[in-house]
Design a protein around this nucleic acid. Sequence first.
DNA 1: GGAAAGACTTGGAAAAATATTT
DNA 2: AAATATTTTTCCAAGTCTTTCC
Length: 443
Amino acid sequence: VRHDPRSQWLATWKENINNQSKYMQLAAQSSFKGKSDRSKYNKAARLCEKIVAIRKAYKRALKSKDDETKQLATATWVIDRLALRVGGEKDTDEEADTVGCCSLRVEHFHFDPNSEGGDNKEIELEFLGKDSMLFKQTINFGSDLYNENNGMGIQVFKNLQKLCSKKSKSEQVFDAINPSMLNNHLKQFMEGLSAKVFRTYNASKTLQDELRKKEETGSWNNLTAAQKVVEYNNANREVAILCNHQRTVSKAQETQLESLGTKLTTLSNQRKELKRFLKLLNAGKSEKIRLKKDEKKLAEAVAKALEKAKKMKDKAKTNEEKIKATEFDEKAKLKRKELTELKFSQAHLWEKTPTSDQVIRKLENWKKKITKSELDLKHKDDNKEVALGTSKINYMDPRISVAWCKRNEVPIEKVFSKTLRDKFNWAMAVEPDWEFNAKIANE
DNA sequence: GGAAAGACTTGGAAAAATATTT
DNA sequence: AAATATTTTTCCAAGTCTTTCC
């Protein structure tokens, strides 16, 4: 037993397989952890002020004659603007071959990936990051996004080009520096600054800017709380994309998306048929309009089968009878499924020949349905690989979210789950106009 | 001065709990 | 109430970064 105010752990031991240190620590909702979480975000917030000087410094150093200085500047740009991790060296015999900024190799860079030739300033970066998550993005260094500070993107591109030339594929791009040099370099700008702080800073800043942008749109105040939460999640998504937080698409999700796709095709085919009906009606050929078929008959059969299955189950005493009853029940359910499919496939049809008014009304209805389900599908597809949770738990200052909720009269539980509310208890008391900026660092 | 150890944060998968649809 | 879909929680490995050791 000992008392050591410098450390947070309650117990520590060596795990017997890989000989790694293990710790027992207080839970995330403890005030102890809360305090260090708060200081993490406060440190990142101080960057709001310091970032100007840092960017100015590396802009100049990008053109330095000294290799080390130049590489430090280029790497800092990458960490600041592309939100990469620092990328510590590790033993590739023992561990997975994953990389970050400092350990990037020439083979991870594809210049002019689409062979556009000429003055192309694109690089496709492709590598496995933490947890072997794929990072694959094409960066256009010529775009305004990277050049608002007159020409920095272009300069970085030139540097990277040079750093990759005359090297074999397996050589490191930033061969003159390593993470501890980079972190030491960063310390001169701000006490306690290290590479990871940029991720926290950029994530929090992005969230705040995105949320503010949305609040400034004209119709914002007309939105319901639920609609505002959707916008919050969209902002959260921007952050997750920035940090490359991904999830693998499960088999179930895959099939779900597929079936949504087929549903959509059915709907649009039905709309086409409805249009045809309208023409037929106008031409006085109403007898050619297809009507609903077999639905009632099948519905009755299904009801009967289900009832019978239930009776069989109630009666069954022996195992054999029970098995039979279950089998029958499964068949009945299959039939029921058929019925729903049939119903869906002729949902646009009528029992009796419709009037053109009816057809018009249904057409409008179908149009709405199609737009909605198109949007739904696109949304699902766009987001199937993005994980929002990680940035919410680790990167976005919770006070931004709390203040946003207060300003917009959105209950906090729409945004933070129970555990997150506990974890971020320290952040709950901020004012509605609270801002993530350099001033709050002293709170 | 550089490598290894130690301490703490960050990461997605899978399980579990809830919500929604049928 | 059952089936499905979505969200939350749990789990522990894989990172980062500072301190210690040689």
